[in-house]
C-alpha cells in the first residue's frame, strides 16, 4: 500500500473510528514510514489546537429574543413579498393547479389580443412608409404544421420568404420556454398555496418535452461561438430533469431543492443575460422549433 492510500485510515484514526484490523495496518505502516508518522502526529496536534477553541455564547438576551426577531423578519418578508407582488392581483389563488394554469392562459390570451388591438391602432400598417417599398397585397400566413420557419425579408419577388429556424434561435426559444417553467416553480409559495397540494403534472410533461428538445439542440450547437449557449442549454437540461423527476403532487422538499439550485447557480441571471445578448434578433417564428 502506498502512503497516499493511508490518508483515509489516518482520518478515521484521528477521530477514533478506525476498525481494529485497519488500525493495526496503519500502526505497522507508521512504524516503518517516518513521513506518515510525522503527518499523523502533526494532524493530531492540529486537532488538539482546534479543540481549544471556545465559541462565544451570545448571551441569554440574544436567545430570549431569537424567536421575536425571527418571527418579525418572517412577517416583514411576507409583507414585502405581498407588496412587490402587484401582479399577484391578476393571479388569484385558485383551488387547483390546473384551474390556475387555465386562468393564466386565458389572461395571457386576453393580454395578447389587447396588445394586438392597440398595436393595430397605433402602428402604421403594411403599405405605409415603413415597409420596404414593395407593396404587399396580403399579410403572409405561416403554417405551424409545416417545415419550421423564420420570416425573412430576402428580396424575394413575393416580398417574404421562409427558411428553417437556426439552432441558435431555437436554443433561445428553448431557454425562454424553460424560464417560464422555472418561474412557475420559483414563485410557488407553499405558505399561501399549501392547502392545495401542488400538482406538478403540467411542469413534468413540459420538462420532458424540453429535455427532448435539448438533446437535439446540443447536437446542433457545435460552433465554438455557441459554446456559452450550449452550456446554458445543458445547465437548464439538468434542472429540467429534476423537475421531470418530481412526484406528481406535493414533493415540496424537492421543489425547494430545485429553487435553491436555480438560485445558487444564478440561472435566472444567466437566462436574462443571454436574452439581453440576443435582443430580438434570431427569434424563430411560431412553431419554428418543433423539430428540435
Amino acid at each position: 500500500m502506498k502512503c497516499r492510500e493511508f490518508e483515509e485510515l489516518i482520518v478515521d484514526a484521528l477521530y477514533g473510528v478506525l476498525e481494529q484490523d485497519a488500525q493495526k495496518r496503519l500502526n505497522a505502516h507508521i512504524d516503518s514510514c517516518r513521513a506518515c508518522a510525522q503527518v499523523y502526529a502533526e494532524m493530531r496536534s492540529t486537532l488538539l489546537v482546534m479543540e481549544k477553541r471556545e465559541r462565544p455564547d451570545p448571551g441569554e438576551a440574544f436567545w430570549d429574543g431569537y424567536w421575536n426577531r425571527l418571527s418579525s423578519r418572517m412577517e416583514k418578508e411576507e409583507t414585502e413579498r405581498r407588496r412587490q407582488g402587484w401582479l399577484g392581483g391578476l393571479f388569484p389563488q385558485l383551488p387547483a393547479t390546473g384551474l390556475r394554469w387555465a386562468y393564466r392562459g386565458v389572461l395571457a390570451v386576453v393580454l395578447i389580443v389587447f396588445g394586438a388591438v392597440v398595436g393595430r391602432m397605433l402602428l402604421p400598417g403594411p403599405g405605409s412608409e415603413m415597409t420596404s417599398g414593395t407593396d404587399i397585397a396580403e399579410t403572409p400566413t405561416i403554417s405551424t404544421t409545416e417545415t419550421p420557419t423564420v420570416i425573412t425579408d430576402d428580396g424575394d419577388a413575393d416580398g417574404l420568404a421562409v427558411r428553417p429556424a437556426s439552432a441558435e434561435a431555437c436554443a433561445r426559444q428553448y431557454i425562454e420556454d424553460t424560464q417560464v417553467l422555472l418561474l412557475a416553480l420559483v414563485n410557488f409559495d407553499p405558505e399561501t398555496e399549501a392547502e392545495y397540494l401542488a400538482d406538478w403534472s403540467f411542469e413534468k410533461n413540459r420538462s420532458r418535452e424540453l429535455i427532448a428538445q435539448a438533446a437535439s439542440l446540443k447536437g446542433d450547437l457545435k460552433d465554438p461561438k455557441q459554446r456559452r449557449l450550449r452550456a446554458l442549454v445543458t445547465e437548464l437540461e439538468a434542472i429540467l430533469l429534476q423537475i421531470a423527476n418530481l412526484e406528481t403532487t406535493g414533493d415540496l422538499e424537492s421543489v425547494e431543492l430545485i429553487r435553491s439550485s436555480v438560485d445558487d447557480r444564478d440561472v435566472m441571471l444567466k437566462i436574462n443575460l443571454e436574452k439581453l445578448r440576443a435582443g430580438d434578433a434570431g427569434k424563430p417564428g411560431p412553431g419554428a422549433c418543433d423539430v428540435w
Binding site: 503527518v39 502526529a41 494532524m43 496536534s45 489546537v49
Partner: peptide, 24 residues
C-alpha cells in the same frame, strides 16, 4: 485530510506562541 493539513500550516507558528505542546 486536506483541511486538517491546511489548518496545521496556518496554525504552525501560533502553536508555539500559545504554548500548546503536542503530546504525541
Amino acid at each position: 485530510f486536506r483541511s486538517i493539513r491546511k489548518l496545521r500550516q496556518r496554525l504552525s507558528f501560533y502553536k508555539e506562541e500559545l504554548g500548546l505542546e503536542d503530546p504525541a
